[in-house]
Design a protein around this nucleic acid. Structure first.
Length: 587
DNA sequence: CGATTTTGACCAGCGC
DNA sequence: GCGCTGGTCAAAATCG
């Protein structure tokens, strides 16, 4: 990790000076490629005021390049519209750059007036070069010896960080092992029980709680399968992230057959439950070997008989088809979800004049994740992105945000409240919520060829710029009364992100339509669990949170008010402290 | 020159 | 069996 990556900054570029204007830390010179990329965007385009959480990595990762240099034109920029709106609404400002300059300058000025010494250690080591800018180095130019001390401190912190990371890895592995043991025990109890009560009826916490359990256990199962695969595959590390398929798999194993309308969990579970346990265990090696083959190799659950295996293969084919669809407004051809995609086909779909594009994930060879992108025939400003499968590789935080959200949605789909054949959803389940997130818009479709859950992010209720005054962690989706027909509220989509130990902040940004901080990807370790912990640790820092909230507020101002929904912000805190508090709560 | 996109062909599933 | 449709493949074209 680069020394500078320890710090996070949110900066906007000042084209008149070769530096960024940071709302908290003042001016930061442009001295790396990533910043230069941002500079280019900021100077050249309307959607310039994206957030740069700059890890300072001089290397521009392929993903960064993908987003900031090449694809950004074609991908959805959630900022653009908001930005335009803000410009239109603010007569006092002549340009976004000026606006940013004002805010940043005022921030510095305020700090000066208050006698605050702005010698904040950003950890970025950014102010040591490019000292040509006048009136810049007066306050921020550290002494040489101080620099050395700071660098030494940073090195120590890096070492400590590495040590803690290893510790966290160990804890995680132990945790998974224990979970797996518990799960195995529960599974056997389940099979031996004559009544074979489905797991989610055993839970007092209801189906949501079981969904969490499945998600955690899914990770545990993944860990075990990873161990198995490690003997037969050279792929090495795989993502521990819970996925659609794992969720389904775990449900099948748990005999989740209490819902007759469940389309996905269609295994003949009664037969399964009659299987002799020893026979089941004896066949595990065989199944494991089978699971190591094929593009969906690691998804094959263990079944005890050849008939079960046959059923499993059929079911897994079905499982692979389980989809999570995300609707978002975008004029770009594809939303930026943090992953790298390669287009492999395009077709005209029936009933829609807009072509459907097919993409597959290229972040790792053999990654089975695919997505379809198509514009809504009714409203062509709406981009419908449908994800299918689960990644077989570690994900960058930006991708994890979307993946965790879609995984969570899928787990909702699979948590026992499957839609009935006529598309009716267990509204009771869907509307029960105890987490502090407002419900998102989602629909479950059973009429589609494959079980699909749709997350509708097009109904942003923020009608005016002031709506951004609401805290980051509290999003207001349309109330159930305002939902379009065939939609039901589905809570905890983002709550599951929290439950799933994913970096909920990233998910929040994504859910806001904010582009992921690209350099944050560089900062995050490959292991997503560690990423989550790291993100949580970083974002748990009150100062960081405050700075981030202030920066986001000042930089993007009235972002996320571009949609046409109705506002319902009665409970929205208006002041900064409330925002910070809510944001911290959401982290 | 490698990566990516385009685009026609091919295949499988499904309904009639 | 046939046609329709969705999905994928793969060669050619394009891009950087």
């Amino acid at each position: 990790m680069d020394d500078r990556s320890l710090g996070l900054s949110i900066a906007t570029h000042d084209p008149s000076k070769s530096c960024f204007l940071h709302p908290i830390f003042g001016k930061i010179p442009v001295n790396n490629t990533a910043a230069a990329a941002c500079k280019h965007d900021i100077m050249g385009r309307v959607d310039s005021d994206r957030i740069l959480i700059n890890g300072g990595d001089d290397r521009v990762s392929p993903l960064q390049t993908h987003i900031s240099e090449k694809r950004v034109v074609n991908e959805m920029n959630f900022f653009a519209h908001d930005h335009k709106d803000k410009l239109a609404s603010d007569d006092q400002e002549t340009s976004s750059v000026d606006h940013v300059k004002k805010e940043s300058a005022s921030t510095v000025l305020d700090a000066d007036e208050q006698g605050i010494k702005l010698d904040i250690n950003t950890g970025l080591n950014l102010s040591t070069t490019n000292t040509s800018s006048e009136n810049f180095n007066i306050e921020y130019k550290p002494q040489e010896n101080e620099l050395a001390v700071l660098q030494a401190d940073l090195n120590e912190m890096n070492v400590e960080n590495q040590r803690l990371r290893g510790l966290l890895n160990q804890v995680n592995s132990d945790y998974r092992a224990l979970q797996m043991q518990l799960f195995t025990f529960m599974q056997r109890q389940q099979i031996r029980r004559p009544g074979n009560t489905p797991v989610h009826e055993m839970s007092n916490g209801g189906k949501v709680a079981v969904a969490r359990q499945f998600m955690d256990l899914g990770q545990a199962a993944m860990a075990e399968k990873d161990d198995q695969l490690s003997h037969s595959s050279s792929e090495g590390t795989r993502s521990r992230e819970f996925s659609i398929v794992e969720s389904m798999e775990m449900q099948k194993i748990n005999g989740d057959n209490n819902n007759n309308n469940n389309e996905i969990v269609a295994l003949d579970l009664e037969k399964k439950n009659n299987i002799n346990i020893s026979e089941r265990e004896a066949r595990q090696d065989q199944d494991a070997a089978q699971s190591a083959a094929g593009w969906c190799s690691n998804k094959v659950p263990r079944f005890s008989s050849s008939r079960d295996v046959e059923n499993a293969s059929q079911t897994m084919s079905m499982i692979r088809k389980a989809r999570v669809s995300v609707r978002a407004r975008s004029e770009a051809s594809m939303i930026s979800d943090g992953c790298q995609w390669r287009k492999y086909g395009q077709k005209m779909a029936k009933g829609n004049p807009c072509p459907r594009a097919y993409y597959r994930c290229t972040m790792a060879s053999g990654c089975p994740v695919r997505k379809q992108v198509q514009r809504c025939s009714q409203d062509r400003t709406i981009l419908i992105t449908t994800y299918e499968g689960n990644h077989n590789h570690p994900l960058p935080p930006a991708a994890m945000a979307m993946a965790s959200t879609t995984s969570a949605a899928a787990s909702m789909l699979l948590s026992g409240s499957m839609p009935s054949a006529d598309g009716i959803v267990n509204a009771d389940f869907l509307t029960k919520s105890s987490l502090p997130f407002s419900p998102s818009l989602a629909s479950l479709s059973a009429s589609a060829p494959f079980p699909t859950i749709t997350l509708d992010l097009t109904h942003n209720p923020n009608p005016n710029p002031s709506q951004f005054q609401r805290p980051l962690g509290q999003f207001h989706f349309p109330s159930p009364n305002n939902l379009p027909q065939n939609f039901v509220t589905m809570p905890q989509v983002f709550g599951h992100t929290v439950i799933n130990n994913q970096p909920s902040f990233m998910g929040l940004l994504n859910s806001m339509g904010l582009e992921q901080p690209q350099s944050a990807q560089n900062q995050m370790p490959a292991n997503d669990t560690i990423s989550a912990a790291t993100a949580a640790a970083i974002t748990a820092d009150p100062s960081f949170t405050a700075a981030l909230v202030a920066a986001i507020t000042s930089v993007i101002g009235n972002v996320h008010q571009n949609q046409n929904g109705n506002s319902n912000n009665n409970t929205t805190p208006r002041n900064s402290s409330d925002k910070i508090e809510h944001m911290k709560n959401s982290l």
